[in-house]
C-alpha cells in the first residue's frame, strides 16, 4: 500500500467511525488487473481493500445521484471529479452540506487501452509507479513510460487539483496550459468540413449503442433518456447511421456547459470511439461566448440555464445568419 493510499484509508476510517459519513466512495482492487472498481465503504472495519492509482478510470461523481439527498457521502475526488460534483450540486442533485470531499491532486489517469496496445490484451498485473508503469503478462514483464500512457483527456486537463474539497491529501501538482483543449478543437476545425464529417461518420459507425458513455457520465442522470422515448421516437432505434449519429450529437449537446472533460465516456466505450472531441468543442465555445467553465463553483448558472438581452450571436433582427 502506498503512503497516499494509507492516508486516504485513514481518512475514510475516521469519517466512518466518527459518523461523519454514511458511505465513503473510493476505489478497491477488482478482480481484473486493468481496472480498479468503484467501492462503497460503510464500515470503518472493512475499509481494507481500498486502492488509489492511475488506473482508477471512473468518475466517482457518477454515483452521487444514486443516493438520497439526506445521505452523508464522502468521496475521493480528483480535479475533474470535484468539478463534476460542483456541477451536480448546482443542478440540485445533492446538498453540498451532505458531502465530504477527499481531494487528491491528480497525476493523470493511465489509459488501459494504451497498455493493451503496448503489451497485448492479456495482462496479469499492473503496478503504477511514479514515472513508470510495470505490467506483467504471460509474455513477460514490461516497463512502460507513464507519461505515454496517459489518457487523452488528462493530457489536456486544465484542473488537476481538486476544487472546494473538505480535505486534500497529497501535494498539489502543477496545472497545465489551459489552451490545450482549445488547440485540439481549433486543429480539428481546420481540417475542413468534409474531413470533419468523414471522421464523425467513421467514429459513430462503430457505436454499438450500449450507452456505456451515458452510464459512465456523472452528468447523464436523466430518469428517461431521449433515446428511450417511444412517443414520439426521437432517434432511430437501431445501429443505423441516423441512429448512431443522432445519439452522439445529442448526447454531447446535452452536456453543453455541464461537461467537465473528464473523459469517462471515452474510457468506458468498448469500441474505442473518440467522442471527447465533441464535448471539447462545446466546452471551448461556452468559454469563448459566455466565459463559462463547468464546475468551477456550485453557484454560477450554466449558459443554457440563463440568457441575456445583449447576447451577441447569429440571431440578428431582420437578417439572415451571421
Amino acid at each position: 500500500m502506498t503512503e497516499l493510499e494509507n492516508r486516504i484509508l485513514a481518512e475514510a476510517q475516521r469519517l466512518l467511525s466518527e459518523n461523519l459519513a454514511d458511505v465513503v466512495i473510493a476505489f478497491k482492487q477488482a478482480d481484473t488487473p486493468l481496472r480498479p472498481q468503484p467501492a462503497f465503504f460503510t464500515d470503518a472495519e472493512a475499509v481494507n481493500d481500498l486502492v488509489y492509482n492511475g488506473l482508477c478510470q471512473n468518475n466517482l461523481a457518477n454515483y452521487l445521484t444514486r443516493y438520497p439527498r439526506e445521505k452523508k457521502i464522502a468521496m475521493v475526488v480528483r480535479g475533474c471529479e470535484s468539478r463534476s460534483v460542483n456541477a451536480l450540486v448546482l443542478e440540485n442533485q445533492h446538498p453540498r452540506e451532505n458531502l465530504y470531499l477527499i481531494g487528491i491532486p491528480c497525476e493523470g489517469i493511465v489509459d488501459w487501452r494504451k497498455i493493451v496496445e503496448a503489451v497485448g490484451e492479456d495482462v496479469l498485473s499492473v503496478q503504477d509507479q511514479a514515472d513508470i508503469v510495470v505490467v506483467r503478462t504471460p509474455k513477460g514483464e514490461f516497463t512502460l513510460d507513464r507519461a505515454a500512457l496517459m489518457h487523452g483527456s488528462c493530457l489536456r486537463c486544465t484542473q488537476k487539483n481538486p476544487l472546494g474539497t473538505d480535505v486534500t491529501i497529497g501535494k498539489p501538482v502543477a496545472e497545465q496550459d489551459p489552451h490545450l483543449l482549445r488547440e485540439r478543437v481549433k486543429n480539428f476545425e481546420a481540417l475542413g468540413i468534409q474531413t470533419r464529417y468523414e471522421y464523425f461518420r467513421q467514429e459513430s459507425e462503430r457505436c454499438i449503442r450500449c450507452y456505456a458513455c451515458r452510464e459512465a457520465c456523472p452528468m447523464c442522470y436523466c430518469e428517461e433518456c431521449f433515446v428511450d422515448h417511444t412517443g414520439p421516437r426521437w432517434t432511430e432505434s437501431g445501429v443505423t447511421p441516423a441512429g448512431m449519429q443522432g445519439w452522439h450529437i445529442i448526447r454531447a449537446f446535452h452536456q453543453t456547459g455541464r461537461c467537465t472533460s473528464c473523459g469517462a465516456c471515452e474510457r468506458a466505450c468498448p469500441m474505442d470511439i473518440h467522442m471527447t472531441y465533441l464535448t471539447d468543442k462545446l466546452n471551448t465555445d461556452m468559454y469563448d461566448k459566455y466565459q463559462f467553465v463547468a464546475g468551477l463553483d456550485a453557484k454560477t448558472q450554466t449558459p443554457f440555464a440563463a440568457f441575456n438581452l445583449d447576447d451577441k450571436n447569429r440571431f440578428v433582427a431582420g437578417g439572415t445568419s451571421k
Binding site: 478543437v185 450529437i249 465533441l278 465555445d285 447576447d311 440578428v316 445568419s321
Partner: peptide, 23 residues
Amino acid sequence: RRQMDEFSDFLNYVGYDEDRICF
C-alpha cells in the same frame, strides 16, 4: 438564441455546413 446558435456551431463542427442553417 443561446441554444440554437451553439447547436448550429456544433453541427458545423461535426460536418454540416452552418450556411445551411438560417435564422
